[in-house]
């Protein structure tokens, strides 16, 4: 029982990291209709930004977090401006290959600057573990869960209540019509990339705090998992990405604890395939009726 509760909590923690990353994928997909393959590598850059500012520049943790968020946001917006904006009207595969190119670029730049050996993330949070009876919950897990919950509520409010959120929903529904209504599509997409990358930075901080070691290829596996989570929940749907991320994390931890660490990836991806076969547009995705 204790083991189950602890597994569920670590699953929720991992799941919230996935969810934060998946939000970036799903928002960009919903609005720009592209798979941003470089998103996972933004996490890696964010983690390095924390390491550099804490370990090398000796900055306090709060400043380091702000720097990481700023670096990622700037990077996301720059990538969008330089690489994706010229391809707005291009076939999706061209954009996909460009995104893959950007992903390779970020990995190799990181490789040149930081080298291929892994670096450890400095301990930034000194939060005591919480003991509830026999169950111990680590402080980092609590912080991750709390911050993710706040971010998700804030994001939902932002999308549903603000003018910019309304613009984002309009652009994702119909780009041309939104433009005719006076919405600047480019500005909306820039804001989307900024939010997505900032969320990736937050995810990178928790990822670093949980998994400690970072190397240039660190971003790709959580990136792929989060991408899977986004599709799992229904790509383009914000609540879907949250749900998909958390379910994927819980599923992964459960299969690691109760079945086998070796088979966990196969199990997670297998469940994903099954779910998509039963519900082809993901858990919360909209089924688009085809018109002839």
């Amino acid at each position: 029982m204790i083991q189950l509760v602890e597994t569920l909590i670590s699953g929720l923690t991992l799941g919230s990291i996935y969810a934060l990353i998946a939000l970036g994928y799903t928002m960009v997909y919903g609005i720009a209709k592209m798979l941003n393959f470089a998103h996972g590598d933004i996490i890696m850059i964010g983690a390095y930004a924390v390491i550099v500012s804490v370990a090398t520049l000796r900055l306090p943790a709060v400043v380091a977090i702000l720097i990481s968020v700023a670096v990622c946001t700037l990077l996301g917006v720059t990538i969008e401006f330089l690489a994706y904006r010229p391809l707005r009207q291009s076939p999706p595969l061209t954009v996909l290959i460009t995104a893959i190119g950007v992903s390779y670029l970020l990995q190799n730049v990181a490789l040149l600057i930081f080298g291929s050996e892994q670096k450890s993330t400095p301990r930034m949070f000194q939060i005591p573990d919480l003991k509830l009876g026999a169950v111990t919950i680590s402080g980092v897990a609590l912080l991750t869960l709390g911050v993710t919950a706040v971010i998700m509520i804030a994001l939902t409010l932002f999308i549903n209540k603000t003018r910019m959120g309304k613009a984002m929903r309009a652009v994702s529904e119909d780009k041309e019509a939104a433009e005719l209504m006076g919405i600047s599509v480019n500005k909306t997409i820039t804001v989307t990339f900024a939010i997505g990358s900032a969320l990736a930075a937050v995810a990178s901080i928790f990822f670093g705090a949980t998994y400690v070691y970072i190397k240039p290829t660190t971003g790709s596996m959580p990136g792929i998992k989060a991408f899977t989570a986004a599709v799992f929940g229904g790509i383009g749907s914000v609540p879907g990405a949250m749900l998909g991320g958390i379910l994927l994390g819980v599923l992964e931890q459960l299969s690691k604890t109760y079945i086998s660490t070796l088979w966990s990836d196969a199990i997670v991806f297998g469940v994903l395939v099954l779910v998509l076969v039963v519900k082809p547009s993901g858990l919360l995705g909209k089924t688009v009726r085809e018109k002839v």
């Binding site: 792929i224 599709v231 790509i235 990836d265 994903l272 395939v273 998509l276 082809p280 547009s281």
Partner: peptide, 16 residues
């Protein structure tokens, strides 16, 4: 994209 993710997932399952 759903098909793409399933092929990706199958590739990872095969590897695993």
């Amino acid at each position: 994209d759903y098909l793409a993710i399933v092929t990706l997932a199958c590739g990872e399952i095969i590897k695993n």
